[in-house]
Design a protein around this nucleic acid. Structure first.
Lengths: 151, 151
DNA sequence: GCTTTATTGCGAGCTTCTCGCAATTGAGAT
DNA sequence: ATCTCAATTGCGAGAAGCTCGCAATAAAGC
């Protein structure tokens, strides 16, 4: 989570430690679920010269190094980025207020075990997204029709 | 799964039964995991006048009616469409051969119960994607680095 | 400091998907 | 059957999200 970690990961893989990379890193490490565009905006508060492509390239590199993860919470919308977390963490997104929170559960371990033992499938990554109504929104709303598709 | 089902769903909601909709429906019902573009191509084998926008509009409508589901298996890539299935079904995608298969498990019920009871979260939809190496590919490969991002 | 080469900014461009509008067509009323 | 009229379609323009090539810049070893 610290920038030392980033320096080590980059250096160890023969990549350079640059301004844009450090800036992107600190934003991603500070706030999860941001889009590349949002990250770019925060980065530009400090250094307005940083280009959006560099943000994308930094994020892609971090993802290759296993430091960061891309998750598409909205099909059709932009991807969101966050620190690579253990698979046991999954996303809960409220359809009403849009809030996304992390949640921890042990069920992922069970799926992994089942697939490995019974199906010879080597699990590398698990992405679990639960959509619904959070406790606040469910109090003020009646659970109506399915979420509609919109951008 | 039959076209009668579609007729009823459309008519019941005040929508018309049209050629493009029937064509899109039969393709989606016949083959899962196709992209809109792929669906359009198959549809055009029968009726070359059907436009890609109509395919998108049909799919969006079906999704609103709860008949079909959009799933983004590749972040950044095009969405894939399939018949709405029970949440207990989830996707297993092989990183090496790209094959996607459905798998059934009871873990989703457990998550739902846990979140409902302990967190007041009303679950409406669960999306689970497991990425890794299928049994065939894991025999001929050594499980190497994390999957890299590429379009 | 100097050199080398990875990295960046910039802009063009690609892919996926959406939207407005005029033309068409389904389905209830006649 | 035919008519009527709103729902739907095809079409093209265009938005959003992301990628890529290239010249300029800057990190890191010497």
């Amino acid at each position: 989570m610290t920038t030392e970690w980033l320096r080590d990961s980059l250096g160890g893989a023969g990549h350079r430690v640059t301004g844009p990379r450090l800036a992107v890193w600190s934003v991603v490490a500070g706030t999860p679920h941001l889009t590349a565009e949002e990250i770019a905006q925060v980065v530009r508060d400090t250094d307005p010269t940083v280009n959006l492509s560099s943000v994308y390239r930094s994020l892609s590199l971090f993802a290759e190094l296993g430091l960061v993860r891309e998750s598409s919470l909205d099909t059709g919308g932009p991807s969101h980025w966050e620190l690579a977390h253990a698979d046991e963490q999954f996303h809960m997104r409220c359809r009403s207020c849009g809030k996304v929170e992390h949640h921890h559960g042990d069920l992922v371990e069970r799926v992994v075990g089942h697939l490995t033992n019974d199906h010879g499938f080597i699990v590398e990554q698990v992405d679990l997204l639960v959509t619904g109504l959070c406790s606040e929104c469910s109090r003020s709303q009646s659970p109506s029709a399915r979420p509609s598709r919109s951008r």
